[in-house]
């Protein structure tokens, strides 16, 4: 059996003595498409940053791709939450995607033909090749998000982590984005943090609910128990028009 891509044991994280994550256990197997859900402030992004090595937990052991978080940068792709700052920044889409190749480049040589080829393929993959010479601020929100995904793909990652990838893009693009992720899932493990429940219904293979504690389910289903313990109230799912959705069966609690 192959070792898990992500293995977090007994993780606790606190900001200024206030626990955001407590006793978190998480194992993600190769090829999984894990949706991390939960209320705002529940610790989803904190968990992601721990997996990326940006935050170090006060307690617990975390390994990502058999290494300390942050040490496997050659095999990790990261799509941060879009904040729309830096729209004035003088950088083209292509140069931004090349930054995803940083772990592969040699300092004295800069980016080589292999890096440019990988960036080119990544741009084609997200359909942004025709826009490669545009400055980042001249692209729409959805186009920018595609460029950020291309930047993560340029690294040819084994593990792709995305933070709220649909937060600042329109409805049509959301579907296209999840379709793309589903195709990519054949080649890489995907962890997506989202409050968007549509990701669950047709794309994810497993789900984790985070609200200080983590509740994991190895199928793309939210159980009433998970909803109850994460959101502390019954929630209502609303969809409009032809958005695919399904009502999940009751769990056999016996």
């Amino acid at each position: 059996m192959t070792p898990p891509v992500v293995d977090a044991q007994d993780v606790c994280f606190a900001y200024d003595g206030c626990f955001v994550l407590e006793d978190v256990h998480l194992q993600v197997r190769r090829g999984e498409f894990l949706a991390v859900m939960g209320p705002n402030g529940g610790g989803k992004t904190t968990l992601l940053k721990i997996l990326l090595g940006l935050l170090v937990p006060q307690r617990g052991v975390v390994s990502v791709l058999d290494a300390t978080p942050g040490k496997a940068s050659r095999k990790v792709g990261y799509v941060p939450q879009q904040t729309n700052i830096h729209l004035q920044f003088p950088i083209t889409a292509e140069d931004l995607v090349l930054l995803g190749r940083l772990p592969h480049r040699r300092r004295t040589h800069g980016f080589g033909p292999m890096d440019r080829e990988a960036a080119c393929q990544a741009l084609h993959r997200v359909g942004m090749w025709p826009f490669r010479r545009r400055r980042i601020g001249q692209l729409s929100g959805g186009q920018r998000q595609r460029v950020f995904i291309a930047r993560a793909l340029a690294n040819e990652p084994e593990l792709l982590l995305l933070d709220e990838p649909t937060a600042s893009v329109d409805r049509e693009f959301q579907g296209a984005l999840y379709d793309l992720l589903k195709t990519l899932n054949a080649r890489m493990t995907i962890i997506v943090v989202s409050h968007d429940l549509t990701v669950l219904s047709s794309y994810a293979t497993s789900v984790a609910c985070v609200n200080r504690r983590l509740y994991y389910h190895d199928r793309a289903e939210l159980t009433p128990a998970m909803l109850e313990s994460t959101y502390h109230c019954p929630i209502e799912l609303v969809t409009h028009g032809p958005v695919p959705h399904r009502v999940l069966k009751e769990h056999d609690l016996s």
Partner: peptide
């Protein structure tokens, strides 16, 4: 000259740069 791309990555997105090992 030596750190151009690291500086570019850090200036644009510090966290992403750190994830990329800058």
């Amino acid at each position: 000259r030596l750190f151009y791309h690291d500086l570019l990555a850090m200036s644009y997105d510090e966290e992403h740069a750190q994830v990329m090992g800058v």
